[in-house]
Design a protein around this nucleic acid. Structure first.
Length: 461
RNA sequence: GGCGCGAUCGCAUAGUGGCCGUGCAACGGAUUGCAAAUCCGUCUACCCCAGUUCGAUUCUGGGUCGCGCCUCCA
């Protein structure tokens, strides 16, 4: 029985899907004007893990992760670059897909682009206006009247009074209430034609929040199971989505809200605005993508995740242990079939069912590795690989992982094999001094040799 | 200022009212020509102060420190 921490109730709840056997999930994805940083990577990996677990649990999942391809920063960046918005966003969408793929993230079922759903957004704004939630301000922007929506603040645990007290926003003239947010922005004269759409309220473009309400209802319906995203979206973005969707459609919008914790650098949130971010592609120049995925999954999705080279090194050592256990185990090619009645699998399942407790699930993997190292039983190897696969890990050939070059330009395989052969000859001649010299020499180049009765193998360490 | 989250062995990350956590590092042993890998063992942690309890790291209250949201942000 799966349980999920629901941000809405601030508690762990039993998961009951709207439609038996099916799950509809929407996750807020990227605004595409730059490369993904590790924080974006975490969202993608976390909800990929969630999707995989839901599927492993027998649910048919429809997973939507949107792409925001129209917004102030995109327009600004495109203008700076002297390129069109379309060119810029296409480029970074492609880059995002590369990063996601590297991290073992499966493609969502739908990746709607905001610009392709403007009619649906306008329809939604029309409904809101008819229902008395939307009004056109003096500057022609269409705004949402937050005070009209009774449940406003429920998700973020804020009252309008609290928000008012901490008011830090410049009050836009014409808003009925400073907290009202924009549904439709009127076009500015200097903006390019590609960011302008006709509407009943004049030429303009959508506000940020409306796209998620429009696209989710279009692709998943007015009421669906899970809505996810980074913690920073809880307010105001998700709060506003609720106000829009429920204001327009009447019923409940989403049953379970999931928010993943931040990636931090030196105990500070990694973010664009702080400028302390590391892009996924930069990290991948130094670390194997699977190590990065493992690093993310080793922490609970709601906990903060501190990023540093040291922690990645640690994750790499840990993952190496898992792959080392798998090394030399006959897997018979075919994808491992998990025996869910086996003790480790049961523990794994119990952990994952408890709000996706991947740290505990990973601990089970290590226990499995320990037993596998002792017994060398093929069925344990199959369990390890199978359960790892549920997390999107351990699917590579162990030797390939252990020998994967983290950086281009390091010693090539042929050179290593030659050295090993030379060392074998020295050993045969009982010239251990020479054998040790070769081994030490390789060690300084990051190559670790391991002797066994079957001969010498190597890995990068 | 308002609201919320967190403080666990050297580091990291889970978890629990009484006994098991996991990885890395360290130490001892086995193994090895010596190593590495592996196995066995050791190192017995829970911010501070009260309270509840037979018993609290785990529950309650207070404090200290850190972080997040309240503005774009995953």
């Amino acid at each position: 029985m799966l349980k999920i921490y629901n941000s809405l109730s601030r508690s762990v709840q039993e998961f009951v899907p709207i439609e038996p056997g099916k799950v509809r999930m929407y996750v807020c994805g990227m605004t595409v004007y730059d490369y993904c940083h590790l924080g974006h990577g975490r969202v993608m990996v976390v909800f990929d893990m969630v999707t995989r677990w839901l599927k492993a649990s027998g649910y048919r999942v429809t997973y939507v992760r949107n792409i925001t391809d129209i917004d102030d920063k995109i327009i600004k960046r495109a203008a700076e670059n002297g390129e069109t918005v379309r060119l810029l966003t296409d480029r970074f969408i492609a880059a995002m897909h590369e990063d996601a793929h590297a991290l073992g993230v499966l493609r969502p079922d739908h990746e709607p682009r905001a610009t392709e759903f403007v009619p649906q957004m306008l329809d939604l704004i029309g409904r809101l206006e008819r229902n008395g939630y939307a009004y056109q301000a003096g500057n022609r922007d269409v705004c949402y009247a937050v005070r009209k929506f009774a449940g406003y603040g429920r998700l973020s645990g804020k009252s309008l009074e609290d928000l008012r007290a901490g008011e830090r926003v410049d009050i836009m003239e014409g808003k009925h209430d400073p907290l009202d947010f924009v549904l439709w922005k009127h076009a500015k004269p200097d903006e390019p034609a590609e960011v302008k759409w006709d509407s009943a309220w004049g030429v303009g473009r959508p506000g940020w929040h409306i796209e998620c309400s429009a696209m989710s209802s279009q692709l998943l319906g007015d009421h669906f199971d899970i809505h996810g995203g980074g913690q920073d979206l809880q307010f105001p973005h998700h709060e506003n989505e609720i106000a829009q969707s429920e204001g327009a459609h009447g019923g409940t919008f989403v049953n379970y809200w999931m928010h993943n914790g931040f990636v931090r650098v030196d105990d500070e949130k990694m973010s664009k605005s702080l400028g302390n971010f590391f892009t996924i592609r930069d990290i991948l120049k130094k670390y194997d993508a699977e190590v990065v995925r493992f690093f993310i999954l080793r922490a609970h999705y709601r906990s903060p995740l501190n990023y540093s080279d040291g922690h990645l090194d640690d994750a790499r050592a840990a993952l190496t242990r898992l792959y080392t256990a798998l090394k030399g185990c006959a897997m018979e090619g075919a994808p491992a079939q998990i025996d869910w009645s086996e003790a480790h699998a049961q523990r794994f399942k119990a952990a994952m069912d408890e709000d996706f407790a991947t740290p505990e699930a990973v601990a089970v993997l290590f226990d499995l590795a320990n037993e596998l190292n002792r017994s060398k039983e093929a069925r344990l190897a199959a369990q390890l690989k199978g359960l790892g696969g549920v997390l999107g890990l351990l699917q590579r050939d162990p030797v390939e992982f252990l020998q994967a070059a983290p950086v281009a330009g390091s010693l090539d395989d042929a050179a290593i094999d030659a050295q090993i052969a030379a060392r074998a000859a020295a050993k045969k001649a009982r010239n251990f001094a020479e054998a040790d010299r070769i081994r030490d020499d390789l060690k300084t180049q990051g190559i670790v040799l391991e002797d066994s009765p079957q001969g010498t193998s190597w890995r990068r360490g």
